[in-house]
């Protein structure tokens, strides 16, 4: 595979340099927003130097305290944590349960059910905004955690069911059959045999669901309008529109919103990329 000891022709070297330059440019473009947001967040409003330059007169922390005090950013992060954990738990439990019969009993009805569930993934949330909002309004679910959690879980479930069903199909059924013959009931089989084997795919489902829920905006912004209930993405956008004259504070708020994901990504990077591939290869 390696072509060692062969002097590379000049054309190949130029080609390699061009490829390297292309990658470096894209990497820089992807880093720039974070860098510029950081410099903006660390400068006072009165500092009109270019956002590309680092703060000159010492670091200015006031934007962060402003984001926390006026933007309710910390409480929004807390709200997002509640909504994300609840949604992810429901998606994992309902998803694994639903996937089991769909993977193991491949009758015509169940194939149709699975196909229908996959079809749900195509529905854009805004296309059902009007009836969904008025339904939740009638149910008293506007500005409640359970309302937004059930709606978001319903949006994330199809992909989770699909991933779980694919994974279960790859597991041998013989252990489950043996346990049944020995007198275990279906629930016991699920709890003691099937669920423990689902750990790898659950990692994928947890990553995909929690990132999507943490970042969700299009529906949360209408379902949670009470500032004390707001999740982070709507909170950022309303703080941004209020603070349009003080982008330092908006930048600080953005950085605070990204921080939790950044920290998790730093430690679990490989899982994220594996999960992404698994989620995409439907």
């Amino acid at each position: 595979m390696k072509r060692q000891g062969v002097a590379r022709p000049r054309r190949v070297r130029v080609g390699r340099a061009a490829i390297g330059a292309f990658v470096v440019v894209i990497v820089l473009i992807q880093v720039m927003p974070f860098y510029v947001t950081l410099t903006t967040a660390l400068k006072p409003k009165t500092d009109l130097s270019s956002r590309l330059s680092l703060p000159s007169g010492g670091i200015h922390w006031k934007n962060f305290s402003l984001a926390i005090a006026d933007g309710h950013i910390l409480s929004s992060i807390g709200n997002s944590a509640v909504v994300t954990v609840a949604t992810t738990v429901i998606v994992c439990v309902f998803g694994a349960l639903a996937a089991y019969p769909l993977a193991r009993r491949r009758t015509r009805t169940n194939s149709l059910v699975l196909l229908g569930i996959l079809g749900l993934m195509m529905i854009p949330p805004l296309s059902v905004l009007v009836p969904l909002y008025s339904l939740l309004n009638q149910m008293g679910g506007i500005n409640t955690y359970w309302g937004v959690v059930l709606v978001l879980a319903n949006m994330q479930l199809p992909l989770a069911i699909f991933l779980y069903a694919n994974f279960i199909r790859g597991l041998p059924a013989s252990i489950e059959e043996a346990a049944r013959v020995d007198g275990a009931n279906l629930i016991q089989v699920l709890v003691h045999i099937v669920f423990p084997m689902l750990k790898p795919v659950t990692a994928t489902v947890v990553i995909l669901t929690s990132v999507a829920t943490w970042n969700e905006y299009a529906l949360s912004v209408y379902l949670l309008t009470d500032p004390t209930k707001q999740t982070i993405a709507p909170a950022i956008s309303s703080f941004f529109s209020v603070q349009s004259s003080n982008l330092g504070a908006a930048s600080a708020a953005s950085l605070l919103a990204v921080l939790p994901i950044l920290v998790v990504y730093l430690f679990l990077q490989q899982y994220f990329i594996k999960g992404m591939v698994a989620g995409a290869e439907k």
């Binding site: 309902f94 769909l102 479930l157």
Partner: peptide, 25 residues
Amino acid sequence: RLGGRRANLLYVPALILFALFTVYP
């Protein structure tokens, strides 16, 4: 052995969510 038709009950909770928050809307 794997629970027969009754196993289909396991996807009912998910279907209720879909019916309420996607299909009905």
